[in-house]
Write a protein that binds this DNA or RNA. Structure first.
Lengths: 251, 251
DNA sequence: TTGATTTTGATTGAATTCGAAAAATAAACT
DNA sequence: AGTTTATTTTTCGAATTCAATCAAAATCAA
């Protein structure tokens, strides 16, 4: 294993764990303790991490991505598993709607690259798609500071111009009785239209979202594919399976 | 196998692997270790890769801002001066259109914060406005990779929903006879509409843009305010002053 | 063809990286 | 405080990798 590979791996580990001890790195890389210590010194020199007694910790990140990636961190393992599965459902020549949100954001690395058109209302999602050279159409409208989502009259008008093979929605609350709910009525409206104009409708919801109800109703559960992780108990699982096509992915 | 073939092959391998060891290259090319070392030295010289102990690694390309800030760097002093002056023209309670582009991007820090609505087709501009908590409306449409600008049918539809007190356009070419021109016809179309729907029309063009003509025509010069720097000679200055309201800012 | 130039592959001593052990330092405990 | 344990730094030899050199092969110019 070459030095830059090790460095990369160490930084990857730090992204997930915030702090890491030397032993974990030696096990992951197969290199000796001495080598890892040297690596850590170099990386600290380059200001890419902070050494601490027993290992290293990641530097306090600056404003930039924090709003986004921080939220993505909650249940990241589960969300990544869900996102990976969802992205696997996308084929070449599909036209796809990707809702603004963290779980849908995580789908991007796993999407097929060619002959794909993606429509989205998430600005960060659009930029990430662009990096992968995927044809991207962004909805118009007012930009929400908290979510970097485009909503409002223009978004509604623009989305009406398209029809989708598949849409993928993140959601704040999913409940057997009250269906899908989200805190912002404007965002709810856009989600509704995405569902209406889409052939196959997928909802990505890690298990923490279940039996939660928020302000604005998006849709009933009928006819939806819901992708979630293993955190649901059997009773819940059965209840939702009656209403939707539930897919449980393993982390 | 000829030298350029080998070089090409090495770069191809690096695209896929991020890092590569010498042995892998010798196996793939059939050339000797010495030859590969010479190749790597040359390629490093040309800044096409980074040598590391045991092999080579691809250069850390900084996707993020590079496209933008790099271009912003050209004539940065002049552009900033122009942007600062232009931003001073914006009052509270205005509704403003900010065209995608580097000079308009530089206006953002100097805009008034309150009771302002900004419409833009530049994704990076929208994000920057958001950081300043300025109410932002983003046009919809297809996203251009090079400029991070939204263009196309949806952009045209969306912009038609608004009327502006002032619009600020960046431009690639400005010429006394051929007017404003820009390389991309789609972007030209959006600029045309911004001008049509705007009361006061401002064009931001540092002096390098003068007497330059590119592919797609945007508009004639009549009725435009042009803001530029001191780099214009007296003859040019007089010529343009006949056609437009020319404002020269000092750096 | 001949001689000059360039490219290539092998060899060698120097430099580097790595792992392990020893010495030094810091934390934890009695 | 004094002892023990854990962690870090330093040191050193072995293994690998590197740069330089040189001769053979291929290419080029007349």
């Amino acid at each position: 294993m070459l030095t830059p590979e090790r460095h990369q791996m160490i930084l990857e580990l730090l992204k997930e764990k915030e702090v890491i001890r030397i032993q974990e790195i030696t096990e992951a890389t197969g290199a000796s303790e001495s080598t890892i210590r040297r690596d850590l010194s170099e990386l600290e020199e380059q200001k890419l991490l902070q050494r601490v007694h027993g290992g290293a910790s990641s530097l306090p990140r600056k404003m930039e991505e924090s709003t986004f990636l921080e939220r993505a961190m909650r249940n990241e393992k589960e969300k990544t598993a869900i996102a990976k599965y969802a992205a696997g459902l996308v084929n070449e020549h599909d036209s796809v709607y990707l809702d603004a949100g963290t779980t849908t954001y995580l789908m991007i690395p796993y999407l097929p690259q060619d002959n794909l058109v993606v429509v989205t209302n998430g600005v960060n999602i659009a930029l990430e798609l662009l990096k992968r050279n995927i044809k991207t159409i962004l909805l118009g409208g007012e930009l929400k500071a908290r979510t970097w989502a485009v909503v409002g009259r223009d978004a509604v008008t623009t989305i009406g111009q398209y029809r989708f093979d598949k849409c993928f929605l993140g959601i704040n609350g999913i409940d057997a009785e009250h269906g899908l709910t989200t805190p912002d009525p404007d965002e709810a409206h856009v989600k509704q239209l995405a569902l209406r104009y889409s052939d196959e409708k997928y909802v990505l919801a890690d298990s923490s979202k279940f039996s939660r109800i928020t302000f604005a109703k998006v849709a009933e559960l009928d006819g939806l594919h819901v992708i979630t992780d293993e955190g649901l108990d059997d009773v819940q699982r059965e209840a939702y399976q009656k209403k939707t096509k539930l897919k449980v992915v393993t982390v």
